[in-house]
Structure formats: structure tokens, C-alpha cells
Simulated scan of single mutants.
Amino acid sequence: MSIKTAEFCSPGHPDKICDFIADSILDAYLAEDKNSRVAVEVMGGHNLITVNGEVTSQVHPDLESIVKKIVGENYKIIINLSKQSPSIAHGVDIGGAGDQGIMKGYATAETENMMPKEYELARNLCQKIYEKYPYDGKTQVTLNGDSVQAVVVSFQNTKNIDLLPLVKNIIEADLTAKASASAVEYLINPAGEWSQGGFDADTGLSGRKLIIDNYGPEITIGGGSFSGKDYTKVDRSGAYIARKIAVDYVKSGKAKEVFVKLAYAI
């Protein structure tokens, strides 16, 4: 039997809040200037948000207002943006990629979404818990062969007496999971119930959850983060097309599992 595991984190996790801020900034530029070149990084926590990076655009959205709509008015916002490097811009202007790098794509026939089974289980569990408890949190599901062996859940503002039955119901109702209550080890808030989370408890950084943003730890990845980058940055667009190639090949019936590698030069 092979043991596989994957985790997922909620939108209330500090790193994912930073990803959301970065993409919200990107969207604001692209909404008014589709040719905007945007590559922003966001760090946040403890009433401070820092936005740093490179932007070349014909528009100037109110970034501070965008950020405060997400995190609240009591945050100090520091924005430090420069124009894209002329050397990089020249390469993109003539049709080149916005970065050098290797991007990977993956697809498998083992799930409807063509994602690894352990990843699907962890993501589905996290999403359904978040519907009831929209706070900071993480899930992890470990498989032994096709069967669920262990489930870890840590979620802010939950009571174990309520969370455990919810988690069991979600896992046991998942059609892709082979689970029985007696066979699965459930670790629910293993460090204890907690109420301080998000930016009040920890610092976040955009692009730090690369494995979660891809396919989980069982599948190797390449390139960099997706968040806050326009399509000329192949960290994002190259990874997307690599995934599409893999999915299309599995859909064709020619393979049950596909790995794709793409390489770009500026």
C-alpha cells in the first residue's frame, strides 16, 4: 500500500488572504487596462499590509481602498510599486515570456476533477467546513492505498464536540473516500480549541502556499506563485496551459495520468 497525504487551507488563512489581496489588485488594473503588466507581492499581519512589486499600466486604481475593503479600516497600508524593468518589458513586447522558468501540469483519471484523490478530499473537507465556520483553518487527509487513514482539522472558532461529527459526515459522505468510523484516525484541533486566528495570530505572504495552489505534495511543481501576476508572467499562465494539456490528454482516453513540463525564456 502507498501512503499519500495532502492539506488545504481556508480563505481565512493569512497566506490566502494575501493571495486574495494580490489578485484583487491585479483585477483592479486589468478591469480598466487589459494590457497592464502587474507583478505584486503582499505581506500582512498584525494591522499592517505591505504591497510591493512592479506595475506598468495606464490606470491608477485606489489600492489602499481595495486593501481596506478586504482587511478593514484599522490596518496601516504601505504600497511601494515601481514600473516593470525595461529589460523585461522589451522581451515581453516582442512576444517573449515575462520570466524564465519551468512550469508543470498534471492530471489523473482517478477523480472527476482530474486532481489527486488525497488533494480532492482535503480541499472538499476544507471548503465544506468553511461554509459553516468562515474563519482561519486547515485540513489534511492521508490515504493508505484507496482508504482514508487519518484526517487532521484545525479550525478557528470551533468546538470539538461540534466539529468532529461534521468532519466525519463530510468524509464518510464523499463518494471518492473509502472510510469507516472505526478505521480513520481523526485529529480535531490537536493543539486545542482556538479563537485567535488570521492576521491577529500570524503573518501571511502571497505565493507561500504553492503546493496547495497546485496538486498537493505528491506531485512535483515548477515555476513560482500565481497570485498578483498578469498573464505575461508564465509562472501563472504557463502553469495553467500545462494543466490544460494534461487534462485534455486524459480526457482523450490516451492515458490515465499525465505529467507535463514546459520551459520558458524571457
Rank of each mutant, 00 (worst) to 15 (best):
D146R: 07
D146W: 00
S147I: 01
V148L: 08
V148W: 09
Q149C: 01
Q149G: 00
A150D: 11
A150K: 09
A150E: 13
V151C: 06
V153P: 02
V153Y: 00
S154H: 01
S154E: 00
S154I: 07
F155L: 06
F155H: 06
F155I: 08
F155T: 02
Q156L: 00
N157P: 02
N157Y: 09
N157A: 12
N157F: 11
T158Y: 03
K159Q: 14
K159W: 02
N160F: 11
I161F: 13
L163P: 04
L163S: 03
L163R: 10
L164K: 15
L164R: 13
L166I: 13
L166Y: 02
L166E: 06
L166V: 10
L166H: 01
V167F: 08
V167D: 03
K168F: 11
K168C: 05
N169T: 14
I170P: 03
I170K: 01
E172K: 06
D174I: 08
D174S: 13
A177D: 11
A177H: 06
K178N: 07
A181N: 14
S182A: 15
S182G: 14
E185T: 12
L187Y: 15
I188N: 12
N189K: 13
P190M: 03
G192I: 07
G192R: 13
S195C: 07
S195R: 09
Q196K: 13
G197A: 10
G197H: 11
G197C: 09
G198N: 10
G198P: 08
G198T: 10
G198F: 01
F199C: 04
D200G: 05
D200C: 09
D202W: 12
D202N: 14
T203R: 04
L205A: 13
S206F: 04
G207F: 04
R208F: 06
R208D: 01
K209L: 08
L210Y: 09
L210R: 02
L210N: 04
L210G: 06
L210C: 05
L210S: 03
I211R: 08
D213E: 13
D213M: 02
D213Q: 07
N214R: 15
Y215C: 09
G216P: 08
P217W: 11
P217L: 06
E218Y: 00
E218P: 00
T220V: 13
T220R: 05
T220S: 14
I221E: 03
I221Q: 07
I221S: 12
G222Q: 10
G222F: 07
G223S: 08
G223Q: 07
G223N: 06
G223P: 02
G224T: 07
G224Q: 04
G224R: 06
S225L: 03
F226V: 05
F226N: 11
G228F: 12
G228C: 09
K229W: 15
K229G: 12
K229S: 10
D230W: 02
D230F: 04
T232K: 09
T232L: 09
K233L: 02
K233N: 12
V234C: 11
D235L: 05
D235N: 11
R236I: 14
R236V: 13
R236S: 11
R236G: 10
R236T: 12
S237I: 10
A239H: 04
A239S: 15
A239K: 04
Y240H: 12
A242W: 01
K244D: 06
K244A: 01
I245D: 02
